[in-house]
């Protein structure tokens, strides 16, 4: 089959798109920014009859706040997330993750829905969505499902979405004044590189102290899906996040991740780096917390 045989339909509304997905006989692939999908097509991995181009569906592009929840449309590009003042205030960890995706060209083309849809264990927005406790909305002609980000991915490139479903919304609670987050990534090159290891951290701090009341840590590229480091998380609230405590937590991360060796890095290097990135991330967060509070600890 030639690439030139693949047709394209560009629905104008979500309803029209869902209808095509359900009723047309052709085999479809959804196309957003194309930065993953077109590469797959060129590699000959995808031989479908028709693209469903989502780019004209304006109702899937939004960043909105409603009461204490933030909603992001799947067609929102990484660049739009980076430049949103709302997200900068309320979802710093996601903004930082999007900054790490590819370079300018990829940030202008690539979308958050596409990053989720690709479901790479190294996808940069995914750990951020884990620590934000994001909910992913799937819509089909017959209804909607809301799935917690952590339950959404079941393996490399595999999600719980059915072929007739589209990601239509990503939502999470806004962060409070004492919440702060960070995203750290190690890649072979500064721009355009796939993560060897990445980590997203979010902490809820107790005012005026170095004590953390709870937090989440999610590692990417160290297992078949992004994983929460629950043992490390449990240690966050044990006492002051002193340099010793941070070093201890990072040592536990070394054991908790389950990386494999592949062309990008060996498993043991990944373990070391997971631990180092977590340690660095926690230090940086504590530094920021101290600066924000303008109180020397």
């Amino acid at each position: 089959m030639y690439v030139s045989d693949i047709d394209m339909l560009s629905p104008r509304s979500l309803q029209e798109c869902l209808y095509l997905l359900e009723n047309e006989k052709a085999s479809f692939r959804l196309l957003a920014g194309g930065t993953d999908a077109v590469v797959r097509m060129k590699e000959g991995k995808w031989q479908h009859d028709c693209w469903l181009n989502l780019k004209n569906i304006d109702e899937l592009k939004f960043i909105a706040i409603e009461k204490d929840e933030i909603h992001i449309g799947p067609l929102t590009t990484h660049q739009e997330i980076i430049s949103s003042p709302l997200l900068r205030d309320h979802a710093d960890v996601l903004v930082q993750a999007c900054r790490e995706v590819g370079a300018a060209q990829m940030q202008n083309m690539g979308t958050i829905g596409g990053n989720i849809g690709t479901a790479s264990p190294a996808g940069d927005t995914i750990p951020a969505l884990f620590v934000l406790g994001a909910i992913i909305e799937l819509t089909s002609l017959t209804g909607k499902r809301h799935i917690c980000a952590e339950d959404f991915f079941i393996g490399p490139g595999k999600t719980v979405a059915f072929p007739n479903e589209i990601i239509t919304k990503i939502s999470f609670k806004i962060r409070g004044k004492h919440d702060l987050g960070i995203f750290q990534k190690l890649g072979p090159r500064k721009a355009q590189s796939i993560s060897i290891v990445n980590v997203a951290i979010s902490l809820s701090m107790k005012e005026g102290t170095r004590e953390c009341t709870g937090g989440r840590i999610a590692f990417g590229s160290v297992g078949p899906v992004v994983l929460r480091a629950k043992k490390c998380e449990a240690m966050l609230a044990l006492g002051e996040l002193s340099p010793d405590m941070i070093a201890n937590i990072s040592r536990v991360a070394w054991k908790e991740v389950m990386p494999i060796s592949d062309i990008r890095a060996s498993a043991s290097y990944r373990r070391d780096m997971a631990s180092a990135l977590l340690e660095r991330g926690l230090y940086r967060l504590m530094k920021r917390w101290a600066d924000d509070e303008r109180k020397p600890f």
Binding site: T35, V38, G102, Q105, N108, M109, Q192
Partner: peptide
């Protein structure tokens, strides 16, 4: 031909993108 090098960069509505990964049907 896969987004890594930028030699195909064009501006789409004012923003730089890789034309090697943008399909004709999307630029209508």
């Amino acid at each position: 031909g896969k987004g890594e090098c930028g030699s195909c960069t064009v501006s789409l509505n004012g923003l730089p993108v890789c034309s090697c990964l943008l399909l004709a049907g999307q630029v209508h």
